[in-house]
Amino acid sequence: MSSPPSWKELVIGGTIIEPGSTVNVRTGTWRTKKPVINQDACTRCRICWEYCPEGIIQELDKPFVSRKGIKYAVTYEVNYDYCKGCGICANECPVKAIDMVSEYE
């Protein structure tokens, strides 16, 4: 990362004048535990997608066939660049298909 600007170059009052600049902040680095979705156990109910406070559960057009032969049109994946590891998805998942796994083990 290049060195940040001097105080003279900053916008008055700390106003952010670049729209959408939050994508530059990789909040995923805050995480101590990460959610891991078990694609075989997942029933595609969409509850994790709905509850995620950061909107980082992605609904992807990726067909998937489970070991029991159930065909799904979509797959849910976590965007680890921005997932803060709050664990709400794992807590809400009705079939316990999401495990919170330590980043340090």
Binding site: K8, G14, T15
Partner: peptide, 26 residues
């Protein structure tokens, strides 16, 4: 530096340790 829809901006955001000091110095 007022809010203006034609030049979107965000007033009063959080400033981390890398930014706060310079803003207050200004």
């Amino acid at each position: 530096h007022a809010l203006d829809p034609s030049r979107p901006s965000s007033m009063g955001p959080i400033a981390g340790p890398d930014w706060y000091y310079e803003i207050k110095f200004g």
